[in-house]
Simulated assay, not measured.
Amino acid sequence: MKVNKEVIERYHRGECSPEEQRIVEQWLDSEEVEMSFPENTDLKVIGDRGWRKISGRYHISPKPEVVASLKLDNYRMIWQFAACLMLVIGAAFFYYSNTDSKNEIQNQIQAYKEVKTAKGEKLMVTLPDGTVVWLNAESVLRFPENFKNDLRELEFSGEAYFNIAKDASKPFIVHTKKTKVQVLGTKFNLRALTTETTTSVVVEEGKVKFSGDSDKQQVILTANKRGVFDLSAGAPFLKTEEVYAVKYIAWKNNELLLDNLTIGEAAQILERWYNVKIKINRKGLHLERYTGNFNNPSLKEVLESMAFAMKFRYQQDGQTFVFY
């Protein structure tokens, strides 16, 4: 049967036989009818537009609402299927994109631990990679709970001795306020006290790269080499020298080594070691130099030795000691 104007009109009025209705609906579904389904278009408008194409071709002008009922069921099924498909795709995209975002955020948000020592306190800390750090008094060590990336990075201030676990694939970097120390596996002492204008590194074993935080000045330090980053003159200055490394790490074994220090410098060390306050009331005494070596000493033992050698007296008032 050929679809013509009369058949279309009867189909529109609901007067077609089941066979005729099937033929007309097949024709409506074919490319010949030239219908389209643009996105975000109301179903009723689609029906109206489709009917206008048909009625325009055959010069039929009934109400468009009627034709909507002809094909709307078919269109609705198509659009419902498409909507369901888009919903599934959208849900999958949302899930995986959010999963990726969450994973990325979780990778970026790293949990950190912070260990502090007070005056008169020393502490040994083992890091997640097996690195062992001995913290001297008044030190702060901040490190991630796990080293997840290609670098093992941490932040530090104070004085500490590092025994770095070797891992060539993950360089170990210590950041201080003004400097950076980078190693693969080594043992070194780092002194970066907030009360001092210098930061120093002494290497006992292995090799480190020591630099200012801008990397403009850097040196390679090996065993028994000391690097000093000095800010006392205003402009940063990085220098190196040959030293006896054991002297700089004696504190780790509770050896108090005062090597040709002024009484003022020695007093600062004693304040940190014993959590006390020292005042020097005798003119010129703070510039006089003292050398002494003690193994796990008491404060009284140290003060009596210094007072005898330097010919001064001291008195105690609570946690404060006055040299005069």
Results as ranks from 00 to 15, higher is better:
130 G>D: 03
176 T>A: 11
295 N>R: 15
317 D>Y: 09
242 E>I: 13
71 K>A: 04
93 F>L: 08
67 V>L: 12
2 K>C: 07
242 E>S: 12
25 E>I: 07
289 R>W: 06
255 E>A: 14
229 F>P: 04
294 F>C: 09
18 P>H: 13
143 F>H: 12
5 K>H: 03
308 F>I: 06
106 Q>F: 01
124 M>Q: 02
29 D>L: 13
112 Y>Q: 03
297 P>D: 09
54 I>Q: 06
118 A>P: 07
77 M>C: 10
265 E>K: 13
170 K>M: 00
51 W>E: 07
321 F>N: 02
11 Y>A: 02
103 N>M: 05
187 K>H: 08
120 G>D: 02
213 D>C: 12
26 Q>S: 14
282 R>G: 07
36 S>D: 03
162 F>P: 09
199 T>E: 15
258 L>Y: 05
283 K>Q: 14
69 S>L: 06
284 G>F: 02
101 S>I: 07
216 K>N: 15
82 A>L: 11
261 L>S: 05
122 K>P: 04
96 Y>P: 00
239 K>Y: 12
141 L>G: 04
34 E>H: 13
220 I>C: 00
323 F>L: 06
69 S>N: 05
304 E>V: 05
88 V>N: 00
25 E>L: 11
321 F>Y: 15
260 N>S: 11
3 V>L: 03
217 Q>I: 06
100 D>V: 11
322 V>G: 04
312 F>T: 11
107 N>G: 05
200 S>V: 00
220 I>S: 03
125 V>N: 01
42 D>N: 15
302 V>R: 13
309 A>D: 11
311 K>A: 14
193 L>V: 07
286 H>T: 10
136 N>E: 02
86 M>S: 11
196 E>F: 09
212 G>I: 00
51 W>M: 09
106 Q>T: 05
68 A>I: 08
162 F>I: 02
75 Y>V: 14
238 L>A: 14
264 G>P: 02
83 A>T: 04
194 T>P: 07
263 I>M: 08
187 K>T: 11
183 V>F: 13
126 T>N: 07
112 Y>I: 02
242 E>G: 07
31 E>T: 09
49 R>V: 15
222 T>I: 11
28 L>D: 09
261 L>G: 01
305 S>N: 14
144 P>Y: 04
283 K>M: 03
259 D>P: 00
105 I>S: 06
36 S>W: 05
29 D>V: 00
146 N>L: 09
90 G>A: 06
29 D>C: 06
277 K>A: 11
105 I>L: 13
254 N>T: 05
96 Y>V: 14
226 R>A: 14
3 V>D: 10
303 L>K: 03
150 D>E: 12
226 R>V: 03
320 T>W: 07
12 H>Q: 11
295 N>E: 05
14 G>F: 09
254 N>V: 08
17 S>T: 15
69 S>G: 04
219 V>L: 04
262 T>C: 13
167 D>M: 07
38 P>E: 07
45 V>D: 15
